[in-house]
Write a protein that binds this DNA or RNA. Structure first.
Lengths: 334, 334
DNA sequence: TTGAAAGCGCTAACAC
DNA sequence: GTGTTAGCGCTTTCAA
């Protein structure tokens, strides 16, 4: 490894001269600066990150804790975070909690002590179910900032980035109602998450408020491990009056369309479907799924910018909760 | 931040005593060790990672450079890497090259100088197209080990983890031939990647070798940005003799099934489809896609283990290329 | 059994 | 304009 010391020896100057020259200090003559930089280039010298980190007590890296990287939404948020982080000169350490509270705690612990400058996290299912939040507050008290996104904990005082799940679901349901559909079902595989409940509430509220409907019984809750197609098919068979579906997660909408088609329904004529998804998922069905776009990349970008803000302004601003607007995109299924 | 120094002062002992006690050195009396550990727990002391890193000149973190995290295959490999890394006490810094050579170079550069102990990378499309590889060899010469997976560069002497794309494609094609299908098409969206070419070669070889077939003209190459459904529909219309399809990537198989269904074909009766995918993707069509499973998680696990091996055995073993066997999984589309 | 001191690579007061 | 020195938090030799 080539160090400042080596350069100093070769040039018969002191390490501080080299350091200053490398950092374009005005104290150093331009001649010396040139010599130093030339030699540095020649040796392909780059400052040792660890040493710089220790000296500056910051790492220029952010810990990102995700419940599940195989979920396209989280992958996309990560993409957004990485992109913006790189632009701002930060690296990201990714930890996957796999929906487990213990893994989440462990990752926080491990990274807290000097490995990262702050955290971006979407809490695990476990954490949300168990209502556990002490581990976050401990970190916060040590002065390490956290930004939570999507799955957030109200009991933790920190910056947050969310979408208005309730409103988005209202929007989807209402779009179906506007098409004069009266038998609208709600399908969810995320009943155990807060955002799942919010989306269900949005659906129910909209249905209750609609003229001549008031029917909120058409709710299908599917647990992990169950076969989507089988459950949906049975559900549709048992409720032949259904002519619209709101899907709360990012895969059941697609499966719903495919199931409808396989059962001989025309989509959207007989049954219209709206899901929470994105352009890519939309393309996976024929007809293409109409969807609520959550702008996952935007969520990632906002999360890291909120964090970097907090990192640079040590002054204690009020914590903010940023709501990223959703968009209803009419593809072909509604 | 609570440091060893603070503990030492509180206990009226030296920092070295504290350090040794914390590390269970036999030099220190059990009484002192206890006192130190108790106070450490009381203060929730944990060693500063950066300082330990600087001292030990290792970071216990691995740089992972991926072309595209939105591709499910890479997300899954990352999942496998993270899981195994955590088990072995390593963290991972994730960089996304976004298929760009420049970003790939930049990430390597930035992390090389003391930020990570080694790299796991799948090279970008750019890199492969341009045949650029100096940036890897530079890193290697500095003694930082690299493991390449899936998209590998023959010109770079390092450990590699791949699947036998040629063989996998042969296997898929042959399965269709065994069903007495003679008009088998090949659909690809990854024509510009080596693995894409290998899969095409496997298909062609198998077709040429089959009795009474020798027809390898039914190849559909789709570029990024084009609409899959539209292209596939036109292709199938123009070639009504097609009764089998091998899809080279992990989305066109699904779209192909949906397109077939929408055109009134029975799947697999009229047209059978096999893609490169996994259980989750398979579920997105009705009928479910039969697929070549690449065991992405396994690839991740093997990659990091190869890297950690290389990290611990500084002895220069021969570089290995590990081939992870694929599995043909018959779901419902073939 | 404990402590002093050096050093990992770097930066930045402070001297010269 | 350049050099000396201390110190970031830790480990580890060596001395006591």
């Amino acid at each position: 490894m080539v160090t400042i010391k080596l350069l100093a020896e070769q040039l018969h100057v002191s390490v501080s001269t080299v350091s200053k020259a490398l950092n374009d200090s005005s104290e150093i003559s331009s001649a010396t600066t040139r010599r130093v930089k030339d030699l540095a280039k020649h040796y392909n010298y780059h400052p040792n990150r660890t040493a710089v980190n220790l000296k500056s007590s910051q790492t220029k890296t952010i810990g990102v804790i995700l419940p599940n990287i195989l979920n396209r939404f989280f992958a996309k948020v990560l993409f957004g975070i990485e992109k913006e982080a790189t632009k701002k000169g930060y690296n990201i350490i990714t930890c996957i909690s796999n929906e487990s509270l213990d893994k989440e705690k462990e990752s926080l612990q491990l990274l807290t002590h000097g490995a990262v400058d702050g955290f971006i996290v979407a809490v695990s299912e476990d954490t949300q179910t168990l209502g556990s939040f002490d581990h976050f507050n401990t970190i916060l008290q040590q002065g390490v900032p956290i930004v939570m996104f999507d799955r957030v904990l109200n009991q933790v005082p920190c910056d947050k980035v969310i979408i208005d799940d309730f409103e988005a679901s209202c929007k989807a349901t209402d779009a179906l109602i506007q098409q004069n559909r009266k038998h609208i079902a709600f399908i969810t595989t995320i009943d155990d998450l807060n955002i799942g409940k919010l989306r269900e509430d949005g659906y129910k509220k909209t249905m209750m408020d609609a003229v001549e409907i008031h029917d909120t019984s058409l709710v299908l809750k599917i647990q992990g491990g169950e076969d989507l197609h089988t459950r949906i098919k049975a559900f549709l068979s048992n409720n032949p009056q259904i002519n619209g579906v709101v899907s709360a997660d990012n895969i059941s909408g697609t499966t719903c369309i495919n199931t409808c088609i396989s059962m001989g329904y025309k989509v959207p004529k007989d049954i219209a479907v709206i899901g929470f998804a994105d352009e890519t998922i939309s393309q996976l069905s024929v007809p293409k799924l109409s969807f609520i776009n959550q702008h996952a990349e935007e969520i990632g970008k906002n999360s890291i910018n909120l964090l970097l803000d907090r990192l640079s302004n040590s002054n204690n601003k009020e914590f903010v909760t940023k709501v990223i607007p959703t968009t209803l995109l009419h593809a072909q299924s509604a």
